[in-house]
Design a protein around this nucleic acid. Structure first.
Length: 229
DNA sequence: TCATTAAATTGTT
DNA sequence: AACAATTTAATGA
């Protein structure tokens, strides 16, 4: 019997860019120690202030990293499409998780225990390179996000959020077309669904994306990333 | 294969 | 927030 959830998780690790560079023994360690679970819509994947003892990957579905300062009022920091891994920051520093991760819809997540993560860190150069590239990329995006929230209007924010979602380095598994509803775009950007709808139509008129029922196709990722008006 | 229905998504106010 | 229109998926004739 093949568990569909488990095979989705397996597919994630085996299609991750660092997988192919691992030695056979390291690959089997990953497979043996990884855990796969399904989280329902609005379900908590990671809680704020919890002890970080695992590296987490999104195998299917969609999630967001959010910081809930006080009740309910949360700011989305980043979207997490299938193929993305996160949590290495808190894992490396052995600190409590700074942010929470919430599933925007039914989502399959893979967790790799800290022991395995540390082993790869100690024994695989390619794995280290992957982490360096990912952390560096995140830093750049984060700085851009801070600017965006202050300076740009709704269109710019949607454009920024989308260009992050489709970032080939952080989300290798994302194809040009991503299945995401406009209400989910609203949740990611902190906009109402109605405003997200308007913004998306503007971006479509600008020729940057194509809007279809239940999905968005990015036509020009570079222009989308620097959209300002 | 086609018709009907419910649910999800979208466009507009 | 509310409403109508559209798309999709599921069901059964």
């Amino acid at each position: 019997m093949t568990n569909p959830i488990l095979s989705t998780g397996l597919q994630l690790v085996q299609t991750s860019t660092w997988w192919g560079a691992l030695a056979a023994s390291q690959q089997s360690l990953v497979v043996e120690t990884m855990r796969v679970k399904q989280v329902e819509t609005d379900g908590v994947i990671c809680q704020k202030n919890e002890v970080v003892d695992a590296w987490v990957g999104i195998a299917s579905g969609l999630a967001k990293i959010a910081s809930s300062s006080f009740e309910g009022k949360g700011v989305t920091l980043s979207g997490l499409p299938p193929g993305s891994w996160f949590g290495e920051g808190s894992l490396l520093k052995s600190e409590l998780r700074r942010y929470e991760v919430i599933a925007l819809r039914q989502t399959v997540v893979v967790t790799l225990p800290k022991s395995t993560f540390d082993h790869l860190l100690d024994h695989s150069i390619p794995f280290n390179r992957f982490l360096l590239a990912q952390i560096n990329e995140r830093l750049g995006l984060f700085i851009g996000t801070v600017e965006t929230d202050r300076l740009l209007g709704p269109e710019g924010r949607v454009a920024r959020a989308l260009s992050q979602l489709f970032n080939p380095l952080l989300s290798p598994g994302v194809k040009p077309t991503l299945e995401i509803s406009q209400s989910e775009v609203g949740l990611l950007t902190g906009l109402s669904r109605q405003r997200a709808n308007q913004a998306l139509q503007t971006l479509e008129k600008a020729g940057l994306v194509r809007i279809e029922y239940g999905s968005i196709t990015v036509l020009n990722l570079q222009e989308l990333g620097r959209f300002e008006g």
